[in-house]
C-alpha cells in the first residue's frame, strides 16, 4: 500500500497519462457493459419498424436502426457481448499460453517442440482460421471464443517463456535449487510471481486485439447470432445505410475504436509500471 501511495505521489511519471486515460476509458466500457445487464433505455431486441432510421436525439440518444431498434441500447448490450467473448477468449489464451510458456522455460526438451507448434499457429491468419472453424462448428459465441483464444496461446506462450527464462537465470533460483526445491515448486513460488506483471500487461493488450477480432467475426456473420446485438454486426448492417443514416455506422465504429484505444493505453501505461525492462529504461 505504502509503496503504491508513494509511487502515485510522484507526479507525471512516464506512462501516467496513458494509464489514466486508458484506465478511465476501460472502466467506463466495463461499467457500461455491466449496466446493460440491469438497465438499457429500451429492450435492445425490441423492433419498432415504423420508427426505423430515426436520427440521434430524435428517437433515443443515438437514434434507431433499420428495424427501429434503439441504437444506444444495442451499443450497451453489444459492449457486454463483445467483452464477454473477448474476456473468455483471452482467458483461454492466457491460461493455456502461460502454462505452455513456463513449462517450456523449465524443460529444454519441451521447449523445442512447443515453440515449433507456436510457430505453426502463428503462420495461420486468425480471421481466416476463424472462418474455417465457423464452417466446422457453426457460428456462435463458442466458435468465436475458441477461434480467438486458440490464436492467443502462442502469443502468451512466447511472452511467458522469454520472461521466465530470464528469471531462471537469476541467482536466487540457483539458491532455491540448492535448498532442494523442485522445478514445479520454483516455477510456482519464484517464476510466476515475478512475471505476473508482464502477463497482466499482455492480457490488456490482447483484450483489445480480441475485441477487434470479435467485431471482425461478427461483421462476417460468425459471431453471436441475432437477436444478441454485437458491434460487428451493427457495423455490417449499417453499411448500406451509410448515406441515409451515417450514425448507424459511426456509433459502433467509435465504440470499437474507443474500446481498443482504452485497452491499449491501459496496457502501455501498465507496461511502464510493471514491466521490469521498461521500468529500467525509463
Amino acid at each position: 500500500m505504502t509503496v503504491l501511495a508513494l509511487r502515485a505521489r510522484r507526479a507525471w511519471r512516464p506512462g501516467s497519462v496513458t494509464l489514466l486515460v486508458g484506465g478511465v476509458l476501460t472502466a467506463f466500457l466495463v461499467a457500461v457493459a455491466l449496466t446493460s445487464l440491469v438497465w438499457t433505455p429500451e429492450d435492445p431486441a425490441r423492433m419498432r419498424i415504423l420508427q426505423k432510421l430515426k436520427g440521434p436525439l430524435v428517437s433515443g440518444l443515438l437514434g434507431t436502426d433499420h428495424l427501429g431498434r434503439d441504437v444506444a441500447s444495442m451499443l450497451m448490450r453489444g459492449a457486454f457481448n463483445s467483452l464477454t467473448v473477448a474476456f473468455a477468449a483471452v482467458a483461454v489464451g492466457a491460461v493455456l499460453g502461460t502454462l505452455a510458456g513456463v513449462a517450456a522455460a523449465a524443460r529444454a526438451g519441451f521447449d523445442a517442440v512447443l515453440m515449433r507448434i507456436c510457430d505453426a499457429l502463428f503462420a495461420l491468419p486468425p480471421i481466416l482460421s476463424a472462418i474455417m472453424l465457423g464452417a466446422l462448428l457453426g457460428p456462435g459465441a463458442l466458435t468465436a471464443i475458441i477461434a480467438i483464444g486458440v490464436f492467443m496461446i502462442p502469443v502468451f506462450a512466447r511472452v511467458t517463456r522469454g520472461a521466465a527464462l530470464q528469471i531462471w537465470a537469476r541467482d536466487y533460483i540457483m539458491a532455491a535449487r540448492m535448498a532442494g526445491k523442485g522445478t514445479a515448486r520454483i516455477t510456482l513460488e519464484h517464476v510466476l510471481p515475478n512475471i505476473a506483471g508482464q502477463i497482466i500487461v499482455q492480457v490488456t493488450i490482447q483484450l483489445a486485439m480480441a475485441i477487434l477480432t470479435e467485431a471482425g467475426l461478427s461483421f462476417l456473420g460468425l459471431g453471436l447470432p441475432p437477436p444478441a446485438p454485437t458491434w460487428g454486426r451493427m457495423l455490417a448492417e449499417a453499411q448500406t445505410y451509410l448515406l441515409q443514416a451515417p450514425h448507424l455506422a459511426l456509433a459502433p465504429g467509435l465504440a470499437i475504436a474507443a474500446a481498443v484505444l482504452g485497452l491499449n493505453l491501459l496496457g502501455d501505461g501498465l507496461a511502464a509500471r510493471l514491466d521490469p525492462r521498461r521500468r529500467q529504461a525509463s
Binding site: 423492433m47 419498424i49 433499420h66 428495424l67 441475432p226 437477436p227
Partner: peptide, 8 residues
C-alpha cells in the same frame, strides 16, 4: 432481415 423480424 426476415429472420430477425420473424424472431421478434
Amino acid at each position: 432481415r426476415t429472420a430477425e423480424i420473424l424472431q421478434a
